[in-house]
């Protein structure tokens, strides 16, 4: 990445989110996100991947303060938003927007496409109604929705059209970064391709950064510059996308990548298998979270929680055992 004195568009520092579960006896603690840090620079796409329960959506919700984090800090263009009173957050939402997974529930069913796009413009700009109307038509054109759809309600649009409208709404205020939470999960593959191409084009034209949350590894490989792999609330591996996909180091990453099916006949790859299923994030034990499922775990793994260690350049993995094994052939 180019090193410039300008702060990153998004800077996440030691983000932590716990939920208290009330019950009989003492309260139990569900750790959804555990001390996660990362940055996103202008025009960059960073992907968060991981299975359900890994905490990736909670991170997006904490960044927008839909959910209040327990501790840690979120800086948008250098400004901390965690302590910010909520009435000031509106300024932040000019730079930071979000596109949700399910356009059916994130669009107001009683608002036409025009009204949906008009709202952010009224809130964030001082455009006249005539200018806003012009901008709405521009936005529709940008996401390849034709003019005649302007008075349609969400239920009168197809799934792909609804997701385009969701993207247009996020684009309306010219944000610096958009958080995309599984934007293609509910779409057919042909529509998925169109949405990916649209996101790529918008990024090229406007230099927007994306935080792309997805479990679709094919899409992640195609769209992102960097990838962060999450497991039970922590980042277990991070690095440039191609580097992580071709040389995964952490046993969890290896297992995840080797499980994703490829559209190639007879290429059933050798799978890296983990024992059992993802455990509950309630009352996490000490040590590495993968202990008990991991094929390379040692006794030390059960007591010390591994931190992210350098593999090469900006590629890091939280597994000292796997890193040692990597070094063996080279010595």
């Amino acid at each position: 990445m180019i090193t410039t004195p300008t702060p990153p568009v998004l800077d996440i520092q030691h983000l932590h989110k716990e939920f208290r579960l009330r019950g009989t006896g003492r309260d139990r603690v569900l750790t959804a996100v555990d001390e996660v840090s990362f940055t996103i620079h202008a025009g960059q796409t960073v992907a968060l991947v991981g299975e359900s329960g890994s905490g990736k959506s909670t991170i997006a919700r904490c960044i927008t303060r839909i959910t209040e984090p327990t501790s840690g800090d979120v800086l948008v263009e250098g400004r901390s938003i965690i302590k910010m009173p909520s009435r000031k957050l509106i300024d932040i939402y000019r730079s930071l927007q979000m596109v949700f997974q399910d356009p059916n529930s994130s669009l107001d069913p009683r608002k036409t496409a025009r009204a949906t796009l008009d709202e952010p413009l009224r809130l964030h700009t001082s455009l006249t109604s005539h200018q806003r109307e012009q901008r709405i038509r521009e936005l529709l054109a940008e996401v390849d929705l034709s003019d005649h759809l302007i008075d349609r309600l969400p239920r009168q649009l197809s799934g792909g059209q609804r997701q385009r409208l969701g993207i247009a709404r996020a684009m309306a205020v010219d944000p610096r970064i958009i958080l995309l939470d599984e934007p293609t999960a509910s779409l057919d593959v042909s529509v998925r391709g169109q949405i990916i191409r649209l996101l790529e084009r918008l990024q090229e034209n406007k230099g927007i950064a994306y935080l792309f949350i997805s479990h679709d590894l094919g899409v992640v490989r195609r769209i992102s510059d960097r990838v962060l792999v999450m497991y039970l609330g922590t980042i277990v591996e991070e690095g440039p996308t191609e580097e992580v996909f071709t040389h995964p180091v952490h046993p969890y990453t290896q297992s995840l990548l080797s499980a994703a099916p490829l559209v190639e006949v007879g290429r059933r790859r050798e799978r890296v298998r983990l024992a059992g299923e993802i455990p509950s994030p309630v009352d996490l034990p000490a040590g590495c979270r993968l202990v008990g499922r991991c094929p390379v775990a040692t006794t030390a793994c059960a007591t010390t929680e591994p931190s992210l260690l350098n593999v090469t350049g900006s590629h890091r993995a939280a597994c000292p055992v796997a890193l040692d094994m990597q070094q063996v052939p080279s010595t």
Partner: peptide, 23 residues
């Protein structure tokens, strides 16, 4: 057969579906 459809599709829709799936 699977190999035939995936490797040498003849139908335009199938071709499109495969390339969309591979992104």
């Amino acid at each position: 057969s699977c190999a035939q459809i995936i490797n040498t599709p003849t139908d335009p829709y199938t071709k499109q579906l495969i390339s969309d799936s591979r992104l």
